[in-house]
Design a protein around this nucleic acid. Structure first.
Lengths: 339, 339
DNA sequence: GGGGACTGAACAATCGTTTTTTCAGGGCTC
DNA sequence: GAGCCCTGAAAAAACGATTGTTCAGTCCCC
């Protein structure tokens, strides 16, 4: 590739002038034709600034790392799209890492920043990564924003309005006439799970419905865990007539469990899931879900990180726009008549 | 972060010695205690070599880009895992891009290499990216390996044994007693689709079964396209009793279509899919699939690219190990008795 | 016509590594 | 004891870009 000095030689100017013209330095005074010669030379030689040279000089890599668990979830795509687009808009590149590969002792994250490969992180932690473990993972002064999660520390974060989302899901069951509503939630140590449960509780409370601990499960979001949770939920007496599953992938597992048990959905049991994704349309029955603005979380997270990089203090933001949206499909219906 | 010159100062040596000790330069002669001092200093200061400095000097970024369409498919996860692990093993980092965002006129790929951000590409093209368009996208001398696809040009490639996989799927239906077997394949312009169709044809031929063009659809791999294909297939007379769907995501759509039509699976119609993913276990009925070694494709692709980077000529490799594996679930059964 | 202000551009330092070249000193040989 | 070789390390150049400083020429004013 062409270098700046080649441009300069071709245009008959010094490197510094070439650089300044190409960067649009406002402090540079130049004759129009000099400018034009540089621009033309750059175009002819198909110039793009060498990344390493620039990064070295500026001590900025203009790259961000997005660290995610469970890349296999289609949900991930929305987040990635948002983050990618926001990053590209600011001429940043995005690196993807998997947080399930980042064990407690690993120094992958430290090194990424230490080597100057990235300027900061977007980190969606897996549910079993404690606040403490998180702090051990990254350098103290690392720029980082937590995605869909929070930490007591002074790190930035961008989260969904989990309370509102879970509440909307629960309210949907309430409005169908359900009075015995269960929850298949995340593990108790996760702040996300706690917020979703809060939304669930809130909706029940407002509907004057009794909240029974026996109808709540907190095993996690994977299809397998949610399936197990659903099975144990079905063994309660009386059992719920509707269940809120705090993650769509879990809901898919839950449907499988119900099918195994021979329980008709939505005839005997309604299922509504937090989060929407294309697969939800193709389950049987197609899942009623609450669509959350995951794409915007990606966008917002990048912006938040970028503003942190330019000196602003870390902030905790909640994405409320667009609002959680109920996507009604076929897995919910009024409860069966009382026997 | 600590720089080399800080290490050198602390150890009381010159920068060059520090660098060579830390890189294990075999040509360096040094007293053991000098070595030790450098090593200790590096450890004390928690040194990691600055990435930009090194990249600038070596003219190598030690980064690769993986460009993929449809990040939303869980299939993607396997490929990514393989590629990531292989890359990390060689101390390369991986950048993820979406090929559906890379339009014909875009110079994203050129720039990535032009700026020296990455040393080469792994590119899984979307089905509608022609050989010509591909060549326009990347610089002539770009190091690139095509993933699961080939091009007539002199680019490297790593592909699955599509023929064997599709053949295995078809043979499964044959062995169940089906004689009227359809195919829902990819678009005709795709080399992948052609190979899978070839495997299908081969299996039919070997079973002495007639191949009817009316039972073949070539609309593409998306759930929607495959659903449309399935519907039109069901309108043929006589209609097939079993269908090979050349992509698991398509098969999910196909099941939805059959459900809409009120056709019992597998009672009236058997469905077997190329590729396996976790969602296949949770459809109704759970999908019988052929699991392909996607993870190994990721590994192999990285290795292939790396060897190309170190001077070897591009190669076309077919991943045959592990061999395609039939994962029998519940979407296939013997054909219904002739009326 | 001499001095100051301004214009338009070159010079030069710097970022952190790697690597070739140079060099000082000590010990050995003859 | 002069020359040589060897050891162990320092010096220096280079990668490509950015940016503060310097500088040569021109114009204008008095």
């Amino acid at each position: 590739m062409a270098t700046l000095s080649q441009i300069a030689r071709l245009a008959g100017v010094s490197v510094s002038v070439a650089s300044r013209v190409l960067n649009g330095d406002p402090k540079l005074r130049t004759r129009p034709d000099t400018r034009d010669r540089v621009l033309k030379a750059a175009k002819d030689l198909n110039y793009t600034a060498n990344y390493a040279g620039r990064a070295l000089r500026l001590a900025r890599s203009k790259a961000l790392a997005l660290i995610i668990p469970a890349v296999s979830s289609p949900l991930f795509a929305d987040l990635l799209s948002g983050a990618t687009e926001a990053a590209e808009a600011q001429e940043y590149t995005l690196l993807i890492g998997r947080s399930d590969r980042i064990t407690a002792g690993s120094d992958t994250l430290r090194r990424l920043v230490g080597e100057g490969r990235v300027d900061g992180f977007l980190l969606q932690r897996s549910d079993d990564l404690s606040d403490q473990a998180l702090e051990n993972l990254v350098a103290n002064d690392a720029r980082i924003v937590l995605v869909t999660s929070r930490t007591p520390g002074r790190r930035g974060s961008v989260i969904l309005d989990d309370v509102a989302g879970a509440r909307l899901a629960t309210e949907h069951l309430v409005s169908l006439g359900h009075t015995r509503i269960g929850l298949i939630g995340g593990v108790p140590s996760s702040d996300i799970a706690r917020r979703r449960e809060q939304g669930y509780a809130l909706a029940l409370h407002e509907a004057n419905l009794r909240r029974r601990e026996a109808w709540v499960r907190r095993l996690g979001y994977s299809p397998e865990m949610a399936a197990a949770a659903m099975e144990s939920l079905m063994a309660t007496d009386p059992r719920p007539t509707g269940v809120v599953v705090a993650n769509v992938n879990g809901a898919i597992g839950a449907l499988t469990a119900l099918r195994r048990l021979g329980i008709d959905v939505p005839g005997e049991m309604s299922v509504v899931a937090y989060h929407d994704e294309w697969v939800a349309e193709h389950t049987w029955p197609p899942l009623t879900t609450v669509k959350m603005p995951y794409y915007q979380v990606g966008v917002q997270a990048v912006q938040s990180l970028l503003s942190q990089l330019s000196g602003s203090p870390p902030q905790d933001v909640v994405v409320r726009d667009p609002a959680p949206l109920l996507v009604q499909r076929m897995s919910t219906a009024p409860p069966p008549p009382r026997p």
